[in-house]
Computed example of a mutant assay.
Amino acid sequence: MSHPPRDRTTLDASLVDLASPTEERNPASTELDALDARGMVDVILGEDATVAGAVQARAGEIAALVEVCVQAISAGGTVHYLGAGTSGRLAVLDAVELAPTFDADASMVTAHLAGGHGAFLTAVEGAEDSTAAGAELVREQCRPGDVVIGLAASGRTPFVGGALEAARAAGMPTALISANPQAELAPLADHPILLAVGPEVVTGSTRMKAGTAQKLTLNALSTAMMVRLGTTFGNLMIDVRPTNAKLVARTVRMLVQASGQSPQRAAAVLEAAGGEVRVALVALLAGAEVEAAAAVLEQFPRDARRVGDPAGIRSAVAALDARS
């Protein structure tokens, strides 16, 4: 079995010779500084345009990981993202945005950044080089039934390697999202998602194409995961938290889009339902009273095993229709 790199506090000469697409020079941008602003932007965006295809090529692997994560969350487990630098910050961004969008919380998906929360705004020197820190984090914060997903653009970050090795030793499913098709840490992942995005426009600047590829991967992974868990009706966010005026208006608009009812009718039913979007939606779709909608929804809670209707909305409406 391949093992993650040891902690490094001094230059390791092997790193200089270690091949990685993220460290290679991009022939499309070798004269980048000689271009005018428009030329620079054209080169940057031209390279960015290739990223989506690289992620699409790994759709099967992403989908397989979705199912693993859905199974874990449904059983009470947690999906843990771990990363350093840009990769870790993207992990944090994805995890925290699931709360307002899908009413998810840290018991479902959470993120850990090498160096702690303070490293989100200020780089913590050497944090990514500690294999022991990654392993310790997993031993302290993860438990059987959880899923551990490491993000490492280079595919060799020691912090991520330590975490994956500790997770695998504890029997947890593991995954790696990397921009290196030959990622050193891939053998530690049950689900390696290796994105062939090629060299960066600015050599080694993995906040660019590698970062974009990781963000696209996380977008697909977490969104599909949440939809499979029953947090949407079609493509509508029925579990969105209406915490401000914009989201309240979006909630009413969503009910209108789903039911074809007027905004006034949708707003009135939502108010009668005490702001419970699911109840209001079933009442509008079935033409039923709020009380009846609430009662029948208790029979059809969110369930990822209910193929075609994980949210339970269609089943609840059908049950009410059958009674009328």
Rank of each mutant, 00 (worst) to 15 (best):
3 H>C: 04
307 V>S: 14
179 A>E: 00
311 A>W: 02
262 S>G: 12
18 L>K: 11
302 R>S: 11
161 G>T: 02
25 R>M: 10
23 E>N: 09
298 E>V: 07
96 V>S: 05
291 E>I: 07
202 V>T: 00
17 D>I: 04
161 G>A: 03
250 R>Y: 07
17 D>R: 14
177 I>M: 10
98 L>Q: 12
195 L>H: 01
200 E>W: 03
43 V>Q: 10
309 D>M: 05
155 G>M: 04
317 V>Q: 00
135 A>F: 07
194 L>H: 04
185 L>G: 00
270 L>P: 03
165 E>W: 05
146 D>H: 05
267 A>M: 05
324 S>F: 02
128 E>A: 11
185 L>Y: 01
169 A>F: 11
85 G>R: 03
43 V>G: 07
53 G>F: 14
290 V>K: 02
207 R>V: 03
236 L>K: 11
252 V>K: 03
268 A>I: 07
266 A>G: 11
34 A>V: 06
223 T>M: 09
51 V>S: 00
51 V>K: 02
28 A>H: 13
262 S>F: 08
105 D>K: 07
171 G>I: 04
36 D>R: 09
305 R>P: 04
83 G>E: 09
59 A>Q: 15
148 V>P: 02
192 P>Q: 08
42 D>M: 12
194 L>A: 08
204 G>M: 06
162 G>D: 00
292 A>S: 14
316 A>P: 02
57 A>F: 06
69 C>N: 05
240 V>R: 10
1 M>S: 14
51 V>N: 00
285 L>D: 04
301 P>M: 06
296 V>H: 00
310 P>N: 13
19 A>L: 10
47 E>S: 11
127 A>C: 08
286 A>W: 01
202 V>I: 14
16 V>P: 08
200 E>I: 01
44 I>V: 15
277 V>L: 15
258 A>P: 01
141 Q>S: 10
197 V>E: 00
241 R>A: 11
307 V>L: 14
99 A>Y: 05
274 G>E: 13
6 R>I: 07
209 K>V: 12
44 I>S: 06
167 A>M: 04
306 R>N: 11
85 G>I: 13
159 F>S: 02
183 A>C: 07
264 Q>R: 13
123 A>R: 09
226 M>S: 08
17 D>S: 14
248 V>A: 14
120 F>Y: 15
110 T>N: 12
272 A>C: 09
171 G>N: 09
123 A>V: 12
68 V>P: 03
28 A>N: 11
84 A>G: 08
151 L>R: 01
207 R>S: 06
125 E>C: 10
36 D>W: 10
12 D>K: 07
192 P>G: 06
179 A>S: 14
202 V>P: 00
129 D>G: 09
230 G>S: 08
33 D>Q: 08
110 T>I: 12
121 L>P: 01
74 S>D: 13
297 L>T: 04
261 Q>A: 14
126 G>Q: 03
272 A>F: 08
211 G>I: 01
279 V>N: 11
121 L>F: 12
217 T>P: 05
235 N>G: 13
219 N>E: 12
321 D>F: 13
201 V>L: 05
252 V>Q: 05
197 V>W: 01
14 S>G: 06
149 I>K: 00
42 D>F: 02
253 R>I: 13
186 A>T: 04
100 P>Q: 03
168 R>N: 13
